[in-house]
Computed example of a mutant assay.
Amino acid sequence: MQPSAPRRRAATLAATALAVVAAVALTPHSADASAGQPAKVKSPVAAGQVLKTGAEPRKVRFDDSTLAATMTTLNASEPIPGTAWVPDPRINKVVVTADPTVTEAKLAQLNTVLKPLGDTVQLERTDSELKLYLSGGDAIYGSSASTIRARCSLGFNVKRSGKPDAFLTAGHCGNPIKSWSTSDGGPEVALVPAGGSSFPGNDYAIAEYTAAEPHPSNVNLYNGTYQAITSARDAVLNESVQRSGSTTHLHGGTVTGLNATVNYKEGQVTGLIRTNVCAEPGDSGGALFSGTAAIGLTSGGTGDCTNGGTTYYQPVTEALSAFGATIP
């Protein structure tokens, strides 16, 4: 884990988190159909009914339960670092991704897992390593009370009944670093309570404010303005989203998959959101959002913001539920 270079203190702990070791997700989500997507049908009668609605029918070979069974089988297999999988309704298969580190024995192991699944899976290779991202929006640092001088990002500010105001960030940040500051090695402004961090398997943490630090419910857009955040919801397939991070600032794209599983070297995580938004080390923990709605926390992925890439996010609704928190 490489600490990020010190940066000037942010004016406020707005709404994005910079992570030290990026992590992952949580529980499975159902894939929502988006407007404009062909309707799946399995018979001529059903196709006729779809046509009457004005939608475009598309015959599918595998139903949702079959693809769900494939995901269950893959999730139960021995994790192979450098791999990921997600149901893709566009091709009616589970897309399995393997990065350049999956070679020889690891590749043979993967092929052994995939062979019995037949045409329900499609293997794709990436030319860059699948990894956790290291930093995100307004920066937070290991404080002077912490033995680790690493940098992460604040995700979203939250409230809980009868408890101190707090912020969400990635669990891989909250695991090693309990005391946070807004400057490198500065005084503590927030503290991760006992049981306030979960990674791997999940990738979320909560840190309670211990100082009178301004903490509005917004996201830094890195153009001198901020996006107000007033609610939280699950991601929708093919919707447009934005991500804010302290390394690469603001970038946008679309949600390309739900319920993704990622096998990092640090462990397996499930139930992630997959997007085509780029990110780089230092963006981890940052806010994924759509308009005024909080969607997720930046985890990891492949590629960069020069050549593009794939990124994965912890659903924010899972973290809110785990901590009994709400968006202000």
Rank of each mutant, 00 (worst) to 15 (best):
G196D: 01
T72W: 03
A15N: 10
K163C: 01
C173L: 10
V96I: 01
D64L: 10
P79W: 02
E129M: 11
P315N: 04
A194C: 10
G118V: 01
N175W: 04
D165E: 10
D63C: 03
T317Y: 07
G186N: 06
P100A: 02
Y133A: 15
N218G: 06
F289Q: 10
T169K: 00
N175I: 13
Q37E: 14
Y222E: 05
S240P: 04
Y133E: 13
A11M: 07
A108K: 13
P216R: 01
T261Q: 06
A47V: 06
L250C: 09
K131D: 14
N220M: 15
D63L: 04
P28G: 05
A35H: 09
T66P: 07
A25G: 15
V121K: 08
L18K: 13
T298V: 11
T225Q: 12
K93I: 00
N220W: 13
G171R: 07
Q2G: 10
Y222D: 07
V24E: 11
G252P: 05
P81K: 05
H251V: 10
P200D: 03
A325D: 03
Y264G: 10
Y264M: 01
D203M: 12
L74W: 02
Q37P: 02
D203T: 14
A5N: 14
L123P: 01
T256A: 00
P89V: 02
A11G: 07
K106L: 10
K265Y: 15
I273S: 02
D119T: 06
S290P: 10
A325K: 05
S217T: 09
L272A: 15
L74P: 02
D138R: 11
L258I: 09
G303I: 04
E188A: 08
T66S: 12
T147S: 07
S43V: 03
I229F: 02
E239K: 03
N218L: 07
P100L: 06
V236S: 08
S65D: 14
L272R: 14
P281R: 13
S299P: 04
G300R: 04
T317H: 06
V102K: 00
T147D: 10
M71Q: 12
T270P: 09
S321D: 13
I229R: 04
Q242R: 10
E129I: 15
Q109G: 14
N307W: 09
T97D: 13
C173A: 08
A17S: 12
T27A: 13
G300F: 04
G301F: 05
P79E: 08
R243G: 08
G185A: 05
L168V: 00
D32W: 11
L74S: 01
A322T: 05
S290H: 12
S146A: 12
P79Y: 08
A287M: 01
L130N: 05
L221Y: 12
H172S: 06
G257M: 00
F167Q: 00
Y264S: 07
V277P: 01
Y222K: 09
A211H: 03
A35Q: 06
A23D: 11
H172Y: 00
T70N: 15
P164H: 10
A108Y: 03
T270S: 12
L288C: 09
A31P: 03
F62R: 05
V41A: 06
S143E: 03
K163A: 08
T73N: 13
A11R: 12
L123N: 00
T12M: 08
T120Q: 15
N238H: 14
T302D: 05
L191G: 00
P328W: 05
